[in-house]
Structure formats: C-alpha cells, structure tokens
Design a protein around this nucleic acid. Sequence first.
DNA 1: CTTAATGGTATACAGACGTATACTTTGCTG
DNA 2: CAGCAAAGTATACGTCTGTATACCATTAAG
Lengths: 222, 222
Amino acid sequence: MTSRNDRGDTKTAPSGRQKLLCAALKLAARSRSLQALGVRELGREAGLNPNTFYRHFTDLDDLSMAVIEELSRDLRQPLQALRRSIVSREENVVRTVELVFDFAKRNPDAMLVGVRELYGASPKVREALREMIRAVAGDLADDMHVMQMTPGLDDRTMRELAEVVVVQVFHSTLDYLEHPQRRDDILRQVVQFINALFVGAIALRTNAPVAKNLVSQALKKP
Amino acid sequence: MTSRNDRGDTKTAPSGRQKLLCAALKLAARSRSLQALGVRELGREAGLNPNTFYRHFTDLDDLSMAVIEELSRDLRQPLQALRRSIVSREENVVRTVELVFDFAKRNPDAMLVGVRELYGASPKVREALREMIRAVAGDLADDMHVMQMTPGLDDRTMRELAEVVVVQVFHSTLDYLEHPQRRDDILRQVVQFINALFVGAIALRTNAPVAKNLVSQALKKP
DNA sequence: CTTAATGGTATACAGACGTATACTTTGCTG
DNA sequence: CAGCAAAGTATACGTCTGTATACCATTAAG
C-alpha cells in the first residue's frame, strides 16, 4: 500500500512511519542514543500504539538505519545540487560549508544524532554514516581536483584530507548549533582550518624544503 | 572508610567501586552509552549485588563522571611525564601521538568510551571530556610555543589548532584499535595531518601571498 | 571490648518494558 | 461495491528494572 506519506513530503499528513522516525530523532537528540530508546517510548512520543512500531520496523537497529538513510538523503541532495551549479574556485569550499551549516540549522536534531551515532554502539549505523561521509568527501575531492585547487596532491591523499575536513565540518555544526552568537566565528574558523590543511599539504607534498624555509623565515621576522 | 582499593592500584584486590567502574567500561565499550546501562546489569557484570551500586554512586550520571575522571587522570599523567622530559623539536609531536596511541592500546575500552561520550547525551560528561581535551591541547600548544615550532601564530590560533589536533588524534585511536594491521599507516597519516595543518597555518598567517605562490608554482610544475 | 560506620547482601514490590495474539479501521483495486 | 492487504489498536503476559527496607561482615576508633 505505502499509504499516506512515508516520505518527508510536507503539507500532507505524516504517516505513522514518519511520525516514528521524527519521534526517534527528537528523543535521541535530547536524551540518549538511538538503540537505547524504547519501543513504547517511541510510540508514546509519536502518539501511536506501541505495537504500531512493528508494522514498520523489525527492531531498533532497523529504525536506526532508516533514520540514518533519511538523514543521508536529505543532506546529500542539496549538496549534489550545489555541485551541479559549479561555483567559482574561491567560493567552492565556503559555499559547501555554508550549505552544511544551513542544513544543520534546519535539521538540528538530525545533525546531532548523526554525529553522535558516528561513534555510537551500533556497527551497522556507524558504517552507514562513514559511508555517507566517504561519499561527500569523494565529491568534495573531485570538485577540488577539477578546479585545480590542490595541485600536486594524489587522489589517495586528497580523499584522506577531504574525509578529515568533512568530519571536522560535521563536528563544527554542533558548536554552530550550540552557540548561535558565535556562528560567524565558527564558520570563519572552519574555513581557515580547511585552507591551512590544504595549503600545508600542498607545501609538504610538492616542495618540503619550502615549508621548512617558511618556518625559518617566520622565525627570523619580528 | 575508603577501604581496600578504590584507586587503580594493581596487585591488590579491587574494591567494589573499582569493579563497578571496570564493568561500566567493559559494558559501555561493547554495547551502548554509559547512561544507558542498567544498575542491575552493572552489578551482574561486576559480580556484585545490585544494591551495592548505591553504596558508591547516586545514579548513572555520577558513575559516568567517575569513569571520565579516572580516564582523564590515567591519560594526562603519562602526558605530563613526557612533557617534563622535554624531547627534541622534531620528535615532540610524534612522541605525543605515540603516547596517546599506546594508551589506547593499553586501555581500549576507556579510549572508545571516552571518544563516544564526547558526543554523548550527558552534558556534564561531555563538558568534562572537553575540559580534558582543552587541557591537553593547552599543554601541546605551550610546548610547541616554547620550542618555537609555530612562529607567527598567536596564542588563540594555537589553541584552536591544538584542540582540533587532539580531537583528531583521539578519533584516530579508534581506527588504530580497529585495524591493527594498518597501525603504521594510521600513525603516519595523523602525523602528516598535524604537519600539514601547522605548516599551512603558518604560511597563511605570516605570508598569505607565499601560500598563493605555492599553489601557482605547483600548478606549473609537471 | 564495645560501638558505630562503611561495604556488601537478601528479599520484596511496583512499574515499565518487549512483544504475542486477536481485533478494527483505512484506503486502494478489481 | 466488494474484497483485501496494510496500518493501527486493545489486551494480556512474562521478564526485567530501579530502588526501598532490613539484615550481615569488616574495620577503625573510643
């Protein structure tokens, strides 16, 4: 049947399944990890009978995976859109970070749970999130490669760096959400981090002595 | 009274309190977050009566804090020792990272739980771990400043970078534990990350044009 | 040696939980 | 409209949990 509204479409009444996913997000965000939630607790929060849970999910791990998959879709979709409307070299990174921060602002619970479960207890969930991060990082690496922003760096290094960057950005969103008054500062900080990381990597990879000289030069300065 | 052995002294029989802390670490490492554990579950794992828990802790948050405090002590102690026997400029960073990795190897459960709870549901626990990271990062920043490894970087930037580095190292320990055959690779990777980050930060801070030139130069190269 | 506190145990109970079974409602499809 | 599968509900039961109360064991102090 797949009745009512199983997808995230707004404007139509949400299905029981969607209500449960929302309830899981809300509860997990404010109290504890996804698999630590209770079936009854979820039903209560969603305004449904406890047993309704089993009409849609086999167990909590199943629901957790569904939550993560929804999160992955909702985050990657706008990222892919941004990718297609390729921006200029200078703005590429900033725009991407801003997009992630914007997503976090619109889906604070989802972002919080996502980062949390990255180090959570369920291997399946962890792996799914890592996979999402790998994909996003891969896209980022490709874009930077195409735009020739990272000359001298081989693909493997690029991927490693991109993954670190994505993880760092995700973590930053938590600070971003928690300290609304410091948002500009946090955005600036994370962009500086990314720039420093790539500039440093390029310097070390293409010409190690140059980097050493940079340090010595700076030492002599004032 | 403080009888038997409440501290982590080996060679003497562990007190009930210590048994409970160990049990919490073991259970949280393999299954779920600290506050999601059960009082009875803990007693069972520790081989104690359920009620014994209340002789030492008021609730699970109390026990969680005790776990984190023990972890902080056990990690910072060897770090401080290393700091006192100041190493050479070149080896400073590598030695520190190796020390953290070695700690992780000796206390895998503690490390896992520590990283997990960094993004966990309990604000008190999170803050305690952040505080520990801030302290370690502060030490690292001081050391690098004393050794003049980061010329041109102001204290604020140094702290920010050091915190990012420490968090990154902590995360790496999880991969380090999970993939024993890739340990050398992971160590190399994290050291390269640290070098790149600081070299890049110095380049951008002391002489932005130099960094731009670096990129242009690398572009022309081969 | 008494005493009092501390650490550990035994028993008990009310409530929450997961889930099985059976029933009703909803909405599509022929 | 009939029929049927999916979605949601009601009730029920056994298990587990948190914790209260009361009872030993050990030890340090008077």
